[in-house]
């Protein structure tokens, strides 16, 4: 009985990286429980606190090392659970809040989930396409959807393994009905790839931005909407423009927004065929093409039915 408690206390410190003497634990527990008749749980707490003080540790250090069970994303169905997941970062989104360091979509072979890395957690940045173990993250429900929060007690560890992400491949035809203003020729932080505003990264301060070309927009087929990001490769395929020619245009016009105006002219309201993976509101573009001709067969069929 006593030995169990001794071992448990020792191992809690051990998994946080600290060795403490078992005899010392036993002596102190024994004193409280058998001499002073203190309830066992109070005694355990008191002894634990004693060692924390001795080692000058904050109590979180021990909590953090409490093992949370490894689960698959599809198993995450209630808020407030501490879990560990092995995931690949599918997409990073722009953070909507000062308090959020990174937000995006992570996936494993059973599904995808939104993740939020809180600024207070002090974690290093994750990168799109890389795989990680997120340990001790907390499940949460936001606007009716599950997400995972990475806080101070969580851990992020990059892994070699390339996690396969489940997704439903779809093909849609729709019009590009909206283009967001943070599109066109943009600059990203060289450290964390975040999109910069005035060459200031919320995490890394003033940096020398790396140019990139993209369109963030909405494709709509009259029945559903899909948020899409067209990257440099997609845009080059559609319009012939790449980062280099976009930079040239910006230099010649002395105005970066001329690139967005130019792309808008070619793309806004145009019908596109996109194949990719549907993940919630997002359609991750795999292949995108303009619709280049009218489907006369459909036209004839409609005329027959109407």
């Amino acid at each position: 009985m006593m030995d169990d408690h001794v071992r448990r206390i020792r191992s809690r410190f051990e998994s946080a990286g600290y060795q403490i003497d078992e005899d010392e634990i036993r002596r102190r527990l024994n004193l409280l429980i058998n001499e002073f008749k203190v309830p066992v749980n109070e005694a355990v707490r008191s002894v634990t606190n004693y060692f924390l003080k001795e080692l000058d540790l904050s109590p979180d250090k021990l909590v953090a090392k409490r093992e949370s069970p490894e689960v698959k994303i599809s198993e995450i169905d209630e808020p407030g659970r501490w879990v560990t997941v092995r995931v690949k970062i599918v997409q990073l989104w722009e953070s909507e809040s000062e308090n959020i360091s990174q937000v995006g979509l992570a996936g494993d072979e059973t599904g995808t989930i939104k993740f939020v890395i809180w600024r207070k957690s002090g974690k290093p940045s994750v990168e799109e396409g890389k795989s990680y173990v997120f340990s001790n993250v907390v499940t949460d429900s936001f606007m009716g959807r599950m997400q995972i929060n990475i806080n101070k007690l969580s851990e992020i560890q990059e892994i070699e393994e390339d996690i396969q992400v489940a997704s439903s491949q779809i093909e849609i035809v729709g019009a590009l009905v909206a283009i967001q203003s943070n599109s066109g020729l943009i600059t990203r932080c060289p450290e964390c790839n975040r999109v910069l505003s005035k060459n200031i990264c919320p995490e890394h301060g003033k940096v020398e931005g790396v140019y990139d070309l993209r369109i963030k927009g909405v494709v709509d087929n009259g029945e559903s909407v899909f948020e899409v990001i067209l990257n440099e490769e997609n845009l080059k395929h559609l319009t012939g423009m790449d980062v280099e020619s976009a930079k040239k245009m910006a230099e010649e016009t002395l105005d970066r927004s001329s690139v967005l105006d130019y792309l808008k002219n070619l793309l806004f309201g145009r019908y596109l065929k996109i194949s990719g993976a549907r993940l919630g509101r997002y359609l991750l573009v795999n292949q995108v093409d303009f619709i280049t001709s009218v489907d006369t067969e459909e036209l004839e069929k409609l005329l027959e039915v109407v």
């Binding site: 019009a175 808008k264 009218v294 036209l299």
Partner: peptide, 24 residues
């Protein structure tokens, strides 16, 4: 209009067919 931009006759044709289908 939230956004308005120059278009072309192909997009117009595609829109009419799409709108015809959905109206039908």
């Amino acid at each position: 209009p939230e956004e308005i931009s120059a278009s072309d006759s192909l997009s117009r044709d595609l829109w009419v067919i799409e709108t015809a289908r959905q109206t039908l």
